[in-house]
Every structure is written in C-alpha cells, then in structure tokens.
Design a protein around this nucleic acid. Sequence first.
DNA 1: GACAAATAATTGCATGAGCAACTATAATGC
DNA 2: GCATTATAGTTGCTCATGCAATTATTTGTC
Lengths: 159, 159
Amino acid sequence: MDCYAGCMEQVSTVCPSSDERVALFALLLDTNARLSRSFALRLEENCAMPLAWFEVLLQLRRAPEGRLRMNQIAEAIVHSTGGTTRLIDRLERAGLVARELCPTDRRAIYVAITTPGNVQLDEALRVHMDYLEEHVSSRLTCDERSALAGLLSKLNESR
Amino acid sequence: MDCYAGCMEQVSTVCPSSDERVALFALLLDTNARLSRSFALRLEENCAMPLAWFEVLLQLRRAPEGRLRMNQIAEAIVHSTGGTTRLIDRLERAGLVARELCPTDRRAIYVAITTPGNVQLDEALRVHMDYLEEHVSSRLTCDERSALAGLLSKLNESR
DNA sequence: GACAAATAATTGCATGAGCAACTATAATGC
DNA sequence: GCATTATAGTTGCTCATGCAATTATTTGTC
C-alpha cells in the first residue's frame, strides 16, 4: 500500500503482467539464472566442480569450525534435506567433506570440510574471483555493489 | 580494479571467501533461491501451476502477438532448447499454449498462449500480486524497488 | 544451382532434486 | 518412568532439466 500514486503502478486487475513489482521479480529470476548458469559453466570447465559443491564448501569454510550439521547445510543452500543427503554423499565420495558423529545428539551428523576440500575450494575461489571481476566488478561500482547487497538483504529478511 | 582502497577489500590470495563480491554473489543466489522457492510453493498450492509454466506464460503475454518461437522462449527463461521442448510439450498437453507453424521458416515453431492459458495466467498473477505485496512491497519502498531494478539491470547487461 | 555451414527443434540418455515415507533418537507431558 | 510428539537424517520414487546426437531447413559460397 505504499506510494501507489508516486509510482504510477497499474491497478492489478487491469494489467498486472506489466506491474513494476512483477517486472522486478522477473528481473531477479533472470539475473540469477544468467549469472549462476554462466558461473556454473565456468566452474565446471575450470575445476570440474558443480556449483552446488562450491556452495556447500563455501558454507563450510564460513562456519565456525569448518563444519555444519546436515540440516544447517540444507537451510543454508536452500535444498531439501533429502537432496542434501545425496549431495553430501557425492561430496564425501569425492573426499572433499567428511561426516562426523555428534557426541551430544546421536541423530545429528556433522559435515566437515577436509584438506582436499579446502584445496579444491581455494582453486574454485580463484576461478570465482576472476569471474566476479569480469561480470560484477566491471558492471557495478563498489558503491553500487554495497547498495545492491543492502537491498537484497532487506528483500531476503525472514519475518 | 575500482576503489580497492575505499572498500577495504581483501586481497584475493588471503581470504577470498569473505570478499565483499563473493558475499554479494552468494547473497544473490540465496535471495533468489528463497523467493523463488516460496513463491513456487504458493503457486503450486493455489493454482497447481509450476513456476516454469508461469514464467513461460508471462513471457508469452509480454510478447508482441502473444507468441514466441521456441528458441526465444529458451533464451527468455534461460533453459536449454531441449528442456524447453519438453516444457512446452507439457504446457501444450495442458492446453495452455499451442504450437503454430511459421510460414516463412519451416524449421521454426511459434508457441502461442491460448484462451485457457490466459485465464490461468490471470489467476496466477493474482496469486503473484498477493505474494509480492507480502514479500516485496512490505520490505522495500517504491524507491528501493526501482533502485534494485536498476542495479540488477546493470548486473544483467550482456556484453 | 550444388555443396557446405549454420540454425531450429526434437529425442535418448543420464542425473540431480523434491516429496513422502521411514528409522532412529531426543524432548515433552502426564 | 512411560507414552507421545518432535526432530535429524536417509531412502524409494518420480520428474524436470541439461547435454550431445539427430533431423530438417535455411543461408552462404563458389
């Protein structure tokens, strides 16, 4: 209900397909699809690493002790728990992560990044930085990037 | 190479996993994943329509004569042409779109939105508007939304 | 005008992900 | 303390999607 007048929004019953917010949502989907697809392709070519693996390894590196529980990973990368089980299976088979038992809760499993996992992540991050240089830094100034980060954070707030 | 000093960016060889641009990229993936997942769920619940169908129908409505060629659809929704063929197969089977021959190029196929397709899209757009009201309008002001659109457009520029 | 290269769409195949059902363990209520 | 409920993770099944190969048609070249 904010600023309908100022933004000249369409009344939703007339032509919502050209509504400014519909366009914004579509633009978000589109931008994400193009960037993640092109980066995934490059990551696959240069590191033989699927994007989902990169996401997991990055989350693990960011985590306090380099490890997270299954459900935390699922939440962080926005996957189902079933999908996450299989994903971690593949990463573990490749030796990049290891499952560890949780001493205080026998239902829980810790997933920790291994040394080979860290090595591969470093390599992937080099490729990532090159990619970002080409596709992000060249298009947005530093101020614009931080503005974008702020706006996405607000949009991403759970409530 | 812009404004390294002013933004206090990490040197990439030290700790790129906490680099501001790495975080921005991750934030974009995350925001997209959460929004598209929650909207897809609602669309499925309220309209029994997959998000991919909604995307196709929206593109078709936006198109000049309510129709696009297969490769244009694939490009617009960022799918492979193979995946698009199957996707349009399902939409056609549901009666929401129709394939039409192209008189000037016999290799090409036009995909047009049908009357039932338009009806279903209207319904989906009502759900979409409600969703946007809850998840977008309540978090970003009108000015913020247009700023976000501008930034995403710049990020999305092909070159 | 014929042959080569490019383009449009479809198909076989493999795979990654979600959902729902299931097992195991922990927390809660009486 | 025991029964109920909730939580963590895995598995069977299904399905949507990408890739590479294939067919049909058009465009470009000589």
